[in-house]
Design a protein around this nucleic acid. Structure first.
Lengths: 153, 153
DNA sequence: TATTGTTATACTCTATAACTATA
DNA sequence: TATAGTTATAGAGTATAACAATA
């Protein structure tokens, strides 16, 4: 019934790390990613590249500043990542004719094929999570996470 | 009432990224970290070093394998991080007399002082979050995150 | 034989600033 | 003047393997 308190020494008034949101989010993410990482390693994609492909699949052709925002990447990082992905044939870049500073990034057939080939695995991981955690609770959690992201600090 | 669906092209049966838990967790964490990062930069700590200090404060002297697990770091990364932190006087390492393979890491006075000096800021960020998001909801969210971390995949 | 931690290596990401081209 | 993206650079983290010391 009663939770065991950490028997610590110098913890004067600081929340335990399990109740510190940034750390809790990180640990949860690491835990969730554990079964997913071997799959990404197998198809030779970093998590970052994977996110870029997912976002391009979801939204469609997109300028780089927007991709960086959606994928939680800095623009200089994205530049390098996209160069490599373009060389690997996963995406294409084209100058925006209306604003020549912009370049529009689009997923390639090969990139789409990679996403599609992975989809059964991804869905299976998700179903497993639904089964072990509960569909409604998972849905609620995703709602709650979205709501936090809308807060202005 | 009805949620607006993303008007995308090739999104055949894949969850939107906002409903993919690893991405949602990452975005939420980035959003939360935004006001915290300038503070860390000011005191010259990376997020990783900050986590190590927090964990040592919470649990007390700890061997490196355990720190790595709690802080979501690989052991080789931790080795380098601790070397630097030891040189900077933030932690101390001592060989475990009972098992000479192990080394026990302990936070130093200077490290504790850094944590303490930061505490008002940390608490303020947390209160701000409670105020804008709701204390009960935040507590529920932390409970839910802890529960996910206990799932066996 | 297995475990703790270190070292080595190659790759990747982060963070910041300076820069180019365009608006 | 401001913005989109690139390049440069220094620092840091990731991932894997090999290793030494100890159990």
């Amino acid at each position: 019934m009663s939770k065991t308190k950490p028997k610590n020494s110098a913890n004067s008034g600081l929340r335990p790390t399990s109740r510190a949101l940034p750390i809790a989010l990180l640990r949860t993410r690491e835990h969730i990613m554990e079964p997913i990482r071997p799959m990404l390693a197998e198809i030779g994609l970093t998590e970052q590249k994977w996110r870029v492909l997912r976002i391009l699949t979801e939204i469609g052709p997109l300028e780089q500043t927007a991709i960086a925002r959606h994928a939680c990447l800095l623009l200089p990082s994205l530049t390098r990542i996209l160069s490599r992905m373009e060389a690997d044939g996963l995406i294409r870049r084209a100058q925006d004719p209306d604003d020549k500073r912009r370049s529009i990034v689009q997923i390639s057939k090969q990139g789409s094929a990679l996403i599609e080939a992975h989809q059964p695995f991804s869905n299976q991981v998700y179903r497993d999570l639904e089964k072990k955690y509960g569909r409604e609770k998972l849905d609620l959690l995703l709602d709650m996470l979205e709501e936090i992201q809308e807060i202005k600090f």
